[in-house]
Amino acid sequence: MVSAVRILLYRGDGQTGPWAEDFARLLPGVETVSWREGETLPACDYAVLWNPAPSLLPQLSRVKAIFLMGAGADAVLKFGAALPNVPLVRLGDAGMAVQMAEYVAYATLRYFRRFDEYEEQARHGLWAPLPPHAKQDFTVGVMGLGKLGLRVVETIRGFGFPVRGWSRTAKDLPGVDCYAGMASLDEFLSGTRVLVSLLPLTAETNNLLDRRRLATLPKGAYLINVARGAQVAEPDLLTLIRSGHIAGATLDVFRNEPLPAPHPFWEEPRITITPHISALTVREDAVRQIIDKIAAFEADQPVADIVDRQLGY
């Protein structure tokens, strides 16, 4: 049981009202406070935030922990030494895994069943059945085998696709060919027909999918990026799609968001664009998870999902 605590709620877009309502409903006795530029933050036990203002960070040095309103930590870790040296806790699942699995399954099936080609034919009034792809030749490779990645692997396997996974450290998953570490990345890519990126953004994964690595994929491969846009060298991807080596891509994340109007991705019909909606935080699930973690802090018990600042997640 959590005794009365004071929590700072902050979002860069200012939309903290619904979060305050959920905390008040689910954690009786909680006091939530807000902060605006130029104000002095009152003493708080915890901070729950997203896209913090740089001037807020020095005032967070006395909180017991900082909770993020999402699963990624890169938007906060970019502040480096300016980020107070207190535990930084990201969300685990909070309703995002099933959404991610739905998104990746849709994008994979759309390409596998050639629905993208049928959509193009329909725009031109064409009735022309295409030969189906062979599922045994359609290995789906998932990069990133955390909570979201594991749900994606489970879902894709349910459709009967061969699945392989790649992660920083070794994993052993039933029915999945697992690869680990940079030394095995080329081997992993060379046998992957649909590449799904679910990796966190770190110094090691920034521009990880450049021209050389994308070219390691077999001809006709397809990319689904639901991680972070900076992992993909965008000009290289465009070049390989236009050359025909990469068949196309479904992209939910981009180096600059919103994707700028003159960006060439908008004009490439083989690239499907969505506005960073593959897995949205389910607010009530997130609040319940944060409350449970606050209870663990208050009871001096282990807390899940504390960010390792050296690893970047």
Rank of each mutant, 00 (worst) to 15 (best):
Q231K: 03
A261P: 07
L49E: 09
W127E: 09
D300P: 01
A279N: 07
Q136I: 10
F254V: 06
Y313L: 10
R270K: 15
A233K: 14
G29W: 09
T40R: 12
V142S: 05
N51Q: 15
Y10F: 14
V282R: 15
E31H: 05
Q301K: 15
G149W: 05
D93P: 13
S197D: 14
G181N: 08
K171D: 07
G12R: 09
E102W: 09
T40P: 01
T274S: 15
P131S: 09
W19V: 05
W50M: 12
D252R: 01
Y106P: 00
P275S: 02
V282L: 14
R211D: 08
Q15G: 01
T40S: 14
F112N: 08
G220S: 10
A97S: 15
P235I: 07
T32S: 12
L195C: 05
G175D: 11
D308K: 07
G38R: 05
L240T: 07
S184I: 03
A81H: 07
R113H: 12
E268R: 01
W266R: 11
N207V: 00
D252A: 09
V152P: 09
V98E: 15
A101M: 04
Q121F: 12
Y46A: 11
P264E: 04
A299I: 03
R157Q: 15
G125S: 10
P87Q: 04
S55V: 03
R11N: 07
I241N: 11
L209Y: 14
T216H: 11
